[in-house]
Design a protein around this nucleic acid. Structure first.
Length: 474
RNA sequence: GGCGGCUUGGCCAAGUGGUAAGGCGACGGCCUGCAAAGCCGUUAUUCUCCAGUUCAAAUCUGGAAGCCGCCUCCA
């Protein structure tokens, strides 16, 4: 089985072959840290988190770099608005980013470099580009000359002529071509700056990624990724800078995730239709959010709504409900070395361009099968059946390791929902006890009345042979 | 205006040439005092529309309609 990845550069899926056997070097464009993350940022980060986890699971040694853009107009503006130094602004939102992503069970990258830590690297590349006649300095600004790079447009499928016709580019007489973009921007009064051969200034937006990827991954690396909106101009410009500077192919595979939509429209700051991760997590379980984000293929849009979140929550609950039955048998769920059919199917789905949606589909088929087996063997469970169930449980947990799901002990999952809600557990237990007594004396009217009362408290009960369990509705 | 993508059952969603996964919902059944959970069954002869290629198309080609994205900061 081989891993196939959709490569934006080629416009098609192709077999993944790492540059160096057994190793993967991957660079992802992280956020510009000027405000809280919304769920759209969450999707990008979760998608690549899963991709990296999967690459590691199938045996690759992964070097994962995800940067923070910590100097930029928006950050500076934010600092001016709030009276904070721009680095205080970026620090604040980097901290928030980590809080949010930790909550979503996203693992840290191998390194998370910041643009301001690599100003020297940036200046070196800009100078190299000037020396090679690929860039030019004007009044303290430095621009990349798109005409000097014949492949300009190869990632996004555009050409410089079309863009001129588009006329949405600022006309700036100092530029040789309107599509030329800034590598270095001279400092305006009150702006932060660093000294450079071209005077006081700061880096343009794209150059930092060329500098940091070069620093940590070298001239050529395996995978570069980010949101679809970065294809142009950001990634196009990165390619131009890096390939012009080093005369080597920049990144082999380009992976771009689709957006989180609200009412079919892209969630974004400018449209104002965004929901912060913090806000979403107040209402939904973090794993439900991940389940939601992974329920569609990563390149497709995914529509955020109350009903889609309810669906994801229900899906998560269904997995935990089944896992709980496993926990009742084994006491503690565990992963075994041996893998089963489910794991094989999971790998098949993931090998096909990280198809988490399909993977989750097969998971549910297995869930049904496991429940069926459990139902059939309710009274007595043979060792054969037990080992079968154990294998399934193990596969589910392994899949959870890749998707970042099912990390909680099932009984704890349901218990934590109780403590997280506002219900009075003592009161609930008392009502359930009363109901059991009513049922024992065949006073079903009273028993049903109590159940209705509990229902009104958002509690659902299940009568088992020897006990009654209760859950908080999701 | 340029470039790209999407359109699958009531809803969500996989599926890139071999005869429509899965989830939610609905309905019927098993289980239950009744429920809930779980299980079983039913729920798209059909994949926006039109034409074409093919023994065979949701999947390929051409055209139409609708929706969306990028071209300006954006995950």
């Amino acid at each position: 089985m081989t891993l196939r990845i959709y490569n934006t550069l080629k416009g098609t899926k192709e077999e993944f072959k790492p540059i160096e056997e057994g190793k993967v070097k991957i660079y992802i464009c992280g956020p510009t840290v000027y405000d809280s993350c919304h769920i759209g940022h969450g999707r990008a980060v979760v998608v690549f988190d899963v991709i990296v986890r999967y690459l590691e699971t199938i045996g690759y040694d992964v070097t994962y770099i995800r940067n923070f853009t910590d100097v930029d107009d928006k950050i500076i503006n934010r600092g001016n608005e709030t009276g904070m130094h721009f680095l205080e602004v970026s620090e604040k939102y980097i901290k928030e980013f980590h809080e949010d992503m930790d909550a979503l069970n996203v693992r840290r990258a191998t390194r998370e470099p910041r643009a301001t830590e690599h100003i020297d690297d940036i200046i070196d590349i800009v100078q190299l580009l000037i020396d090679k006649d690929k860039a030019y300095a004007v009044d303290g600004d430095v621009y990349f000359s798109v005409d000097s790079f014949k492949d300009y447009g190869k990632l996004s499928g555009r050409n410089v002529e079309d863009m001129k016709a588009g006329a949405r580019i600022d006309i700036d007489d100092r530029k040789k071509n309107p599509a030329d973009f800034a590598l270095w921007k001279s400092a305006k009064p009150e702006e932060p700056f660093w000294d450079s051969p071209w005077g006081k200034g700061r880096p343009g937006w794209h150059i930092e990624c060329s500098a940091m990827s070069y620093r940590f991954l070298g001239e050529t690396f395996d995978i570069h990724g980010g949101g679809k909106d970065l294809i142009f101009p950001h990634h196009e410009n990165e390619i131009a800078q890096s390939e012009a500077a080093f005369d080597k192919e920049f990144a082999k595979y380009w992976i771009h995730n689709g957006f989180v939509n609200i009412n079919k429209e892209k969630m974004s700051k400018s449209l104002g239709n965004f929901l912060t991760i913090k806000k979403v997590l107040k209402e939904y379980h973090p794993e439900a959010v991940r389940m939601f984000l992974l329920s569609n293929h990563y390149r497709s849009p995914v529509d955020f709504s109350e009903s889609s979140m309810a669906e994801a929550s229900a899906a998560l609950e269904r997995v935990y409900t089944t896992l709980l039955r496993g926990e009742e048998i084994f006491g503690q769920l565990s992963v075994t070395e041996e893998t089963g059919e489910l794991w094989k199917n999971f790998k098949t789905s993931m090998d096909d361009d990280f198809n988490t949606a399909q993977a989750i589909g097969t998971l549910f088929e297995v869930l049904r099968k496991m429940n069926r087996t459990l139902d059939k063997n309710r009274d007595e469970i043979s060792d054969d059946v037990k080992s079968d169930i154990q294998k399934t449980v193990s596969d589910i947990l392994k899949i959870g390791d890749v998707l970042g799901l099912f990390t909680t002990k099932p009984s704890d999952y349901f218990e934590s929902r109780k403590s997280a809600s506002s219900v009075d557990e003592v009161e609930v237990e008392a009502l359930i006890k009363e109901r059991r007594e009513a049922r024992a004396s065949k006073d079903f009217a009273r028993a049903d009345a109590i159940r209705d009362e509990l229902d009104a408290m958002n509690i659902v009960i299940e009568d088992k042979a020897d006990k009654t369990v209760w859950k908080v509705k999701s």
